[in-house]
Nucleic acid binder design. Structure first.
Lengths: 198, 198
DNA sequence: CGAGTCGTTGAACGGAATCAATCGTCGTGG
DNA sequence: CCACGACGATTGATTCCGTTCAACGACTCG
């Protein structure tokens, strides 16, 4: 049960994939909810609007993230979902998922485990972001991500910027901080592998 | 099903409450896991240690937060849980919860809804924290928390500091920012109620 | 009444954001 | 096939805003 993914668990309910142009909407606030999604490429932003029309961004889903799980328990979507980049999303039928969960209680447990893991990782990320110093923030994040045995982590090629986004810092700051950590001897970088020394 | 809380859903599995002195451990990494918890008062920090002994804070649970849900699916705890303040936690028996979920599939669905809501709010908080400017960060958070109809939110008395913690900013900055927003006319404060104007 | 804490404001400093420029790589289309 | 554009990675210089340190009044609780 341990490391199954959202996509694997709900594979039977998968319907199709959708391509979205930048700025295109996957769904709008108030639409009847029929599906949940995972982002395969690009980025999709969930925006809620207050009565006065203020926009409140609830989430920006990146590749690998799931989207609109809460719609499982709601008749309508409570947000707009807008592609901030040209994007591809996988779709999963809400009705089929609910039926699956009801018919196969053990799948419900797996699903709970899935969510519990996600909560854990979100909380860990929040904890990272509560660290003020850029240096310590990066170091903490690296320790979090690194393989516990080898103390290495691989940077998904071409995406130090994505990492900067996760860390909520300017990408320039991340480059500089990594360079400093390396000259301090705290880490090593060859190609796309970062090794941490203690 | 909608707005039930963790405590309500799992009330039948509740065992006792534990008091912890500051610095006391609720459990240690590697202990067999028997319970999950919610924090009633104080604060409990989850810390994982790497092989080299580096500490990685995974989460700091505050009053209202649940704790160690992931232990439902693990034989042991993977973190130390240490009280950072004198604390009280409510305990829920893991075995009873699992049994409940297996026997009452509809409770599993409720539990999933519970987690989905939590994921949503964690993601919203992450989104808030990705806003650099203190002013916009506070404003975004207020819009997020305010009652959609009245555009008001009440500050749980004596806890602007707790709010500053959530926003990951120095509490002095929060005071100043609120003062500025008020003099800008964006918000009003009387007693413990903040009203947002658009 | 004193200790502790929250809320508030002031002043100064420091570090991260920002603006900017360069280099390398990759993909695309002429 | 090469020129061009786009984008990631990197480094420099400057600005600015949030942190930090500090002090004070108000309030609560023992």
């Amino acid at each position: 049960m341990q490391n199954i993914s959202f996509g694997e668990l709900f594979a039977p309910a998968r319907t199709s994939a959708k391509s979205l142009g930048q700025g295109e909407f996957l769904f709008r606030q108030g639409d009847p909810s029929s599906s949940l999604y995972t982002v395969l490429a690009g980025g999709v932003r969930l925006v809620r609007y207050t009565l006065e029309g203020n926009a409140v961004v609830m989430h920006t889903a990146r590749p690998g993230d799931s989207l609109a799980e809460a719609s499982l328990f709601s008749e309508i979507y409570h947000c707009d979902a807008e592609a901030v980049l040209p994007s591809i999303v996988a779709c999963y039928d809400k009705g089929k998922i609910l039926a699956m969960l009801r018919e196969h209680p053990e799948k419900s447990l797996t699903c709970i485990a899935l969510f519990a893991r996600q909560v854990r990782s979100l909380r860990a990320l929040l904890e990272v972001r509560s660290i003020r110093s850029a240096r310590d923030r990066v170091l903490h994040y690296l320790l979090l991500q690194a393989d516990p045995v080898t103390m290495e982590m691989s940077i998904p090629a071409g995406s130090l910027k994505a990492m900067a986004l996760k860390l909520a810092m300017a990408h320039e700051t991340l480059y500089r901080t990594l360079a400093n950590l390396e000259s301090e001897g705290k880490i090593n970088r060859n190609a796309s592998i970062i090794k941490i020394h203690h």
